[in-house]
């Protein structure tokens, strides 16, 4: 009797495992984003530049007999990229001497590079046909890489855009001067300001990436 009970228990446990929960309605997965890496920053953004971008990618045909018959695929994505320029707010210096305020604006920086969400639709993507003989698919990884490479390139270009960097600095000067003068005026204190702009410096890590991209471009143009 005990054995029968035991066997019944095993069957009762095994049945749901064997047939899954196919009888039940599937519940949608609800996933809550996890917050990570919280850090205090101090950034004043002063300019947002909108660029019309076309990321032109080529997925080359593979090598080896498994890839015979493949063709190079062209993949273009058209979208609007936004570059935010600004300054490190905590590096601002305000000094007073004989009633004259000297405001030193630190080097401008590229604070963020992003894709304007609404500019990226399925219509923004154009791609060439695949080979009849052997498929050379533009996979999800290829698509991610194309967009990521384009954005990285945009960031490097943004750092090298001296006009934007100067504009970001001068706008920061205007904002800070206006803020300080408002307080001085409210208190009835005479206000005279001198704005000094620090030289714009590209961080070493970014400069290294620019140099690397440049050398890669040079070597590819030589190969052509």
């Amino acid at each position: 009797m005990g054995r029968i009970k035991h066997a019944l228990c095993v069957v009762a446990l095994a049945l749901p495992l064997a047939f899954g929960t196919s009888g039940c309605a599937k519940q949608p997965v609800v996933l809550k984003p996890e917050i990570e890496a919280i850090r205090s920053i101090s950034k004043l953004s002063t300019i947002q530049a909108y660029f019309h971008n076309v990321a032109q990618s080529t997925k080359t045909a593979g090598t080896g007999f498994m890839h015979w018959g493949e063709v190079d695929r062209t993949y273009w994505v058209e979208y609007t990229g936004i570059v935010t320029y600004g300054i490190e707010f905590s590096k601002l210096e305000v000094n007073e001497e004989n009633g004259v305020y000297t405001i030193t604006i630190p080097s401008a920086q590229v604070q963020n590079v992003k894709i304007e969400r609404d500019s990226l639709t399925e219509d923004s993507v154009i791609y060439s046909n695949d080979s009849f003989w052997n498929s050379n698919p533009i996979t999800d990884k290829d698509q991610v890489k194309a967009l990521d490479d384009a954005q990285k390139q945009m960031e490097l270009d943004a750092w090298q855009n001296e006009m934007m960097m100067h504009s970001a600095q001068s706008r920061a000067g205007e904002l800070i001067s206006s803020y300080i003068s408002s307080i001085a005026q409210a208190s009835g204190t005479p206000y005279e300001a001198r704005i000094v702009y620090a030289d714009n410096v590209i961080p070493e890590s970014i400069q290294a990436q620019i140099d690397k991209a440049q050398s890669e471009e040079d070597s590819s143009s030589q190969t052509e």
Partner: peptide, 8 residues
Amino acid sequence: IENSSSLS
């Protein structure tokens, strides 16, 4: 180009 004055 758009002006911004966001302090993050």
